[in-house]
Design a protein around this nucleic acid. Structure first.
Lengths: 374, 374
DNA sequence: CCGAATAAGTAAGTGCGCTGAACTAACAAA
DNA sequence: TTTGTTAGTTCAGCGCACTTACTTATTCGG
């Protein structure tokens, strides 16, 4: 035996109500991941009795979240089951991605993670309160774009975001200690979940990408560089939400100067604008540059991969930069620099969700927070 | 809001019985960390009602785990409370440390983590089944050394240990897929918990060291080098229990050959025997060597510290090697190579528990597994 | 074609664990 | 002594999931 998964210390009291919610989530989770099933199937997989499952399913059907789908085609002995499945469009989610520097984009997403409508607003240099106002507008306009009830609003924001959904620090938008979650929730009258964009990205990838059960690290490359991690099935926050701040780890003490005042941060070689500039320089050997950057990235990530037993490393950002010599070099160096036990199960790839990772991940924030599903 | 702490997906069904156990742990935890308290105090801090607390405390007193301590000295308004406290010696724990190469050591530990008796057996080159036999003997002899009931047996073993307590691979003892936990539990008729020695070390430090709430990494330096991590209040296992395998991360591609067949692994510069040999070489400048090793260690750990928002880095092993220029250099380089947000809250130090970390941590395995306390 | 077997789903009753409200006990201050 | 405050207990009741027993719906073997 060994203490696995469970936090070392108990947190807070546990009501019967919590048990009920937990079991509700258990069923929703099953339907979410494995698709329609009969009540009896749900009872078998969840370990609950058929009675309890029927009761819970009845409740969910009453709410419209789950719908009866009739009997399956194949005929077996006994009474044919009635399949029930998640009603993906019974409720919609509003998801926002604030990580671009020129616009805020958002979408209406259904419970299956499919984008139903899109909308965006240009930032036009808005900062501070103006930028908050812009977020409010974007959210409201998206809510108006669906006729379904809205389960909640999920936001992937740049910068450091704490567990309460307050943006501690986001230089681009000039936000410091901005209680985005609270103000949005108040204005909209809906549950709002805010997290760092790299964190929502890793959630999106974890839930809707082709990922396994091992540790997952998503490296987001854009204006800056950030990472999000899912370890042991949980999102890693760090003490003040500062986990994943890999962009300003030094990769070369003698490297270029960085905006943070130090030298040779990962961002100085990997952030998209910097890297593009370097590739556009006269006489630059594209493959050589990308390989060199990939190698440095690999050397930086190797200790992380080895220490955390990461199984999947996903590069998210401009594919034309990331998915070629850069990825290959990073992959190779990580394998060279970690023991086979660690690297054997490792996959290094680019995101299958493309530019929507953050958006879809923001929806996962809501799915997870409201339904306990991911 | 943001999904915090809670795993993203619900795991398994939840009985009322579990709620009861959870609340039991909640009270034990409070008594364990904050010392004696009245029933009313417990009710306030736990959020449970006085009724429920009284009931649970009654149960715990009945089992002997908790005892009434009478009224406190100071007089306040109202009926004076009766303090209750953990009966530290009501039950004992048998803890084993198998990480040394020449002997297996063990201890009888009380619920407060205090060592009550020690015992050890020389390994004398025992391997495979013989080594397992030796563990059985050590455990039995320790159980015979206390007259109190034994809560359980905790084992810190070298090598990779999975969540079920099976030693997947431990070269020194020639164990592969050895179900140590199961075989011990069967032979002794007691609950047995087995984990990797670095993992037990981090548990020991987390529970009995002067640690805060942030991420904690314990680096164990001995014959090999390994790490254990506590993140967000949970022990990190990795997919097959392979988290913390930092010893064979390459720090210098052109370095010395390593037992694993590759070159320049962290172990080749940091493992105690290697480092001692290098320091003993004629003409070696002790401070310079230790500083250089510390710098390399810092460079390796910087990405890990930055990415995980580690708050405490504890070096555990021979103090005369670790606690001087080496620690200082590592500390300095990590600070140079991570952004101030990450490194500001960081403390780099050696263990306050000395050689007993693994042993005490093995006891924590039992405390956590059996009482939900840590 | 009909009973036996099998499986899904429903209904009623039971037990467990927690809660709120009321109650007793023990003290300090007025 | 009275009043107010705090600690701890008793008791009725509620929510949740369980067990048991039943109905419904189908296939299979004779």
């Amino acid at each position: 035996m060994s203490p696995v998964g469970r936090p070392l210390r108990p947190r807070g009291k546990l009501l019967q109500e919590d048990a009920r919610r937990h079991h509700r989530s258990l069923l929703l989770q099953q339907l979410f991941r494995e698709g329609p099933a009969s009540r009896a199937d749900l009872a078998r997989t969840s370990g609950l009795t058929r009675v309890t499952v029927s009761d819970l399913v009845g409740e969910l059907v009453g709410e419209g979240l789950v719908e009866e789908l009739g009997a399956p085609a194949e005929a077996r002995v006994g009474k044919p089951p009635t399949l029930v499945g998640l009603a993906a469009d019974s409720t919609h989610i509003v998801a926002l991605d604030l990580s671009a520097d020129d616009r805020m984009s958002g979408a209406v997403v259904n419970l299956a993670g499919q984008v139903q409508a899109r909308h965006e607003l240009p930032i036009d240099g808005a900062q501070g309160a103006d930028a908050v106002e812009l977020v409010h507008r974007l959210a409201s306009e998206l809510i108006a774009m669906t006729d379904r009830p809205v389960l909640g609003v999920g936001v992937g924001s740049p910068g450091v975001v704490d567990a309460a959904g307050t943006v501690i620090d986001a230089p681009n938008l000039a936000w410091t200690d901005t209680p985005l979650s609270t103000s949005l929730a108040e204005a909209l009258g809906l549950p709002v979940f805010v997290a760092n964009d790299a964190n929502t990205a890793v959630l999106g990838e974890h839930t809707f990408g082709q990922t396994g059960d091992g540790g997952l690290l998503v490296l987001r490359v854009g204006i800056g560089v950030g990472a999000g991690l899912v370890l042991e099935g949980s999102l890693l926050h760090g003490h003040l939400g500062a986990a994943g701040e890999i962009g300003h780890v030094t990769v070369d003490p003698d490297g270029d100067e960085c905006a943070c005042g130090r030298r040779g941060c990962l961002e100085t070689i990997l952030a998209a604008p910097r890297l593009r500039r370097r590739l556009a320089a006269p006489g630059a050997d594209r493959a050589a540059v990308l390989t060199e950057v990939g190698e440095r990235l690999g050397a930086t990530l190797a200790p992380v991969v080895g220490t955390l037993n990461i199984h999947e490393l996903v590069l998210s950002g401009p594919t034309e930069l990331l998915d070629g010599p850069l990825r290959e070099a990073a992959d190779r160096v990580i394998r060279e620099r970690t023991m086979p036990v660690s690297s054997a199960g490792l996959a290094v790839r680019t995101s299958t969700l493309g530019d929507d990772v953050v958006l879809v991940g923001a929806a996962v924030l809501v799915l997870s927070g409201q339904l306990g599903v991911s």
